[in-house]
Design a protein around this nucleic acid. Sequence first.
DNA 1: GTGTTTACTTTTTTT
DNA 2: AAGTAAACAC
Length: 664
Amino acid sequence: MSFDYQSKLNAAQYEAVTTIAGPVLIIAGAGSGKTRVITHRMAYMLDSGIPQAQILALTFTNKAAREMSQRVKDLTGKKLQALTVSTFHSFGVKIIRENARLLSRRDNFSIYDEGDKAQLIKETAMEMGFNANTLDVYEISNLFSAIKTGMKEWQSSSDRYRTLFDEYQKGLQLYNAVDFDDLILFPIKLFRENPEVLERYRNRFRYVMVDEFQDTSMQQYEFMRFLAEKNICVVGDDDQSIYSWRGADFENIRKFERDFPDLKEIKLEQNYRSTGTILAAANGVISHNTNRKKKSLWSGNDSGKPVEIFMPEDEKKEAEFIAEMIQTIRIREKLNFSDFGVLIRTNNLNRAIEEAFLDSNIPYTMSGGTSFFQRKEIKDIISYLRVIANPDDDINLLRIINTPRRGLGRKTISEISAAADAQNCSIWTAINSINDRNGMLFQEKSGDNLSEFADFIRSRRSEMLSGKDLANKVRKMVEDIDYWSYLVQEYQKNEKAARYKFLNIENLIASISVWEKDPDNFDKSLYDYLNRITLMSRDSLEDEYSGKVNLMTIHAAKGLEFPVVFIAGAEDGIIPHARSIEEGEGNIEEERRLFYVAITRAQSKLFISSCMKRRKAGNEIECTPSPFLSEIPENLVEHHEPAPQLETSEAIDILAKMKARFGS
DNA sequence: GTGTTTACTTTTTTT
DNA sequence: AAGTAAACAC
């Protein structure tokens, strides 16, 4: 053994780390050293002589996967070439890639994100003669996911979309693409239909670990169940289950208990993260949930400072308060900007806060939200790369066929689509077969433009699919399509915007270059780059978290911790979110868990703010505090006086409201 | 085939 | 308030 595990871990942790054979269920309360246990457990396995290649650790976010392998690396000091630490989805990609033909795909398949998916649904629906005005693509997209993941069955109300669904599926196959749901479903299908393939993977991965087990969906459970024979270790906390809308089902914990009756259950109940006060506040809130596994999380830490509740007038005041507090506390406590976490329920709450940060020169990162890869200019360039990787990808081909303009307008495009439709082939194939016949169908100009476009894609294909220095090839491509002129043209009135967009492209190229130079990543093909970024799209691009305040959704904050945490927008309708309650009364428990997760991110100081008013879609609306606030035991709370100017009737109103609420 | 104006709605959370 | 999509005009 390279080091003394016993001295680094408490008794329960030590047991969890050293029990490597047989099924293990670890119930790990918030802040109980879960990541520590998982990483030490992997290190322990390696120390015990288990080959890296036999270990598979599945996580939910790329961030978690990255952090985990880094920590194992630090612990063991070994190079980890064969250890698999990956998200369910990336692991799915890998399996599909290795068995593409068995799943009627080719190995250069595209992965369709939400946007591509919506586009495909839309186009398919149009072709089938659905009415564009009554079509709710968002809703249909969700329906299709629910059907695919087995959360919903076809019903009379949804039946009219059944044929659309079939066509959608055919479209994916035709374009050699898969959607996010397929990344889990295809491997399951593969394993079910090809026992010999399953056997191969089972032989390879003898030790399987699943993190955030409470957030596994039925399919992910099935996926895991196929692979895991006996040495399976799952780690989770039912109180932190916050992804049920995505199919997560913490009943899986009970299912696991039934499926592996001889399992060893280990509870980690000592919280090392938070002060006694913060933990008591969290416990006070979560105890209102009825459907939960019994556990008693305790802290050996000091009680610390009270939870501070602030009721600013509006979101602007709230943001200023947060910014001011960060500045003050940072200096007083000698903290770094990165020691602060600002948590919000929905992405659109970021606006006021970002503005306040900019005003007071506070460096910050916002993870989630409109990601870098959603920006138009980035999507354009990525679409080029996608088409180069997989020309049959109609959705992306249509996106770029006339961007920048090359004289291929609506007419030409609809004709070429019709031709593709008639021959039941992709647009790319259609373009080429028409080119073979010298573009008879079109006016000479359009035909020329088409073949020029096809030649361009072909030449890039031969150039980019092999060899090195992707970053430079991308740069050259951007020059060749003259994207800069296009931007200037498009944003004539706003040269700054054009510049900014071009800068974004420069950043993209720089990030490709960084990725290429990373010695830890051994497969550097264009495919890998594309797969990686589609799965990462919501994940923050920058590796540089250091020295910046972390602004993020509560969902994105899962698994993280900060010395000082602000929960902003703690109003009724935001948390619990009105839409979520609308969907079902039962969702209140999940919203409460979400609030619980938010509270338990804090190590030593927690602020919660709830605005009196908030601007929403143009107009100002009155807000009431989240009902969860009153679930925090009153003795743990300190109310931050807003010191309102008492001239206005509004301010008096606000004070009355506060008193009614908190009696102070 | 392309550019401009007008109407319209508005995403909870993410791989 | 802002961004998109569709209608309209050139």
